[in-house]
């Protein structure tokens, strides 16, 4: 017990408080100036916007993936099931260079996309691609157990009451999945906001255009702007904390029905 608390404090809590104290050192006006400079605002916009889009993409395709893994039998299912966890196991930097080489205009997929006029790397689209990679397992793995536990008799009850397959999916299955789906979505979003390694290789990193918030922290740090770096970190920590609250609230809400 004591050991747990001590380690927790030394490794996590005390260092975390350092960012708050450091940014407070700037004073109120200094804090505002650093936290909401034009460049920082654009970086948040990109980080949050791209994370949101990626989370939506994952919400859709992740749900389909979870559905296929739970409900269908197909050859290679075990492999697909393992591959879904790749983003958990693959170092983010490796993912970053792999995605960049694949989706760059010279890359295998990027070249084909370029032919139809889509530029998929070195711009916000690239950021979305990287964040989609990172966030996918969060949606799949939160939905899967809920989908598996969704008793078949509930679907059968709906069918015996005259509901067609689409009605059953829309009125019975999706509402039952909603809390888990929102949780997975929020987790994918939260992870995307803080992601660094997989993004920087494919983002292009142009200030005001394709520069994510975590990168801005590093840039400030390299220029010895410790206060500004800490301030942006405080804003991001605030958002992480908010996301934690949101996820907990979703789960508390879901428990109402169980």
């Amino acid at each position: 017990m004591g050991v747990t608390l001590t380690i927790l404090s030394v490794i996590v809590l005390i260092p975390l408080s350092a960012v708050a104290i450091k940014s407070a050192g700037l004073g109120f006006d200094g804090f505002l100036a650093a936290a909401f400079s034009e460049r920082a605002l654009r970086a948040y916009q990109l980080s949050f916007g791209a994370s949101l889009v990626a989370a939506v993409v994952n919400g859709l395709f992740g749900a389909l993936t979870a559905w296929a893994l739970v409900r269908y039998e197909f050859p290679g299912k075990a492999v697909i099931n393992a591959v879904v966890d790749l983003p958990f196991a693959l170092p983010t930097a490796v993912a970053g260079i792999a995605l960049a080489s694949l989706y760059a205009p010279t890359g295998w997929v990027g070249a084909k996309l370029a032919m139809v006029g889509i530029k998929a790397a070195y711009n916000p689209v690239g950021v979305v691609i990287a964040l989609t990679f990172i966030g996918l397992p969060f949606v799949v793995r939160t939905l899967e157990p809920v989908l598996r536990d969704l008793a078949a008799d509930v679907e059968e009850a709906a069918a015996s009451l005259g509901a067609g397959r689409l009605s059953i999916i829309g009125r019975v299955i999706l509402p039952a999945l909603a809390p888990a789906w929102l949780t997975g979505f929020a987790m994918a979003f939260a992870r995307g906001v803080g992601e660094y390694g997989s993004v920087i290789f494919i983002a292009g990193n142009m200030p005001f255009k394709s520069e994510i918030a975590p990168l801005l922290i590093i840039i400030q740090l390299e220029q010895y702007q410790y206060g500004a770096a800490a301030t942006i970190a405080v804003v991001m920590l605030g958002v992480s904390f908010l996301m934690l609250l949101v996820i907990n609230a979703i789960q508390a809400w879901a428990r109402r029905f169980v």
Binding site: A151, D153, V154, E156, A157, S160, V172, P175, F257
Partner: peptide
């Protein structure tokens, strides 16, 4: 059809 575990729609 009334199911053994009732199969009510919880939501």
């Amino acid at each position: 059809f009334v199911f053994q575990q009732y199969a009510l729609f919880k939501h």
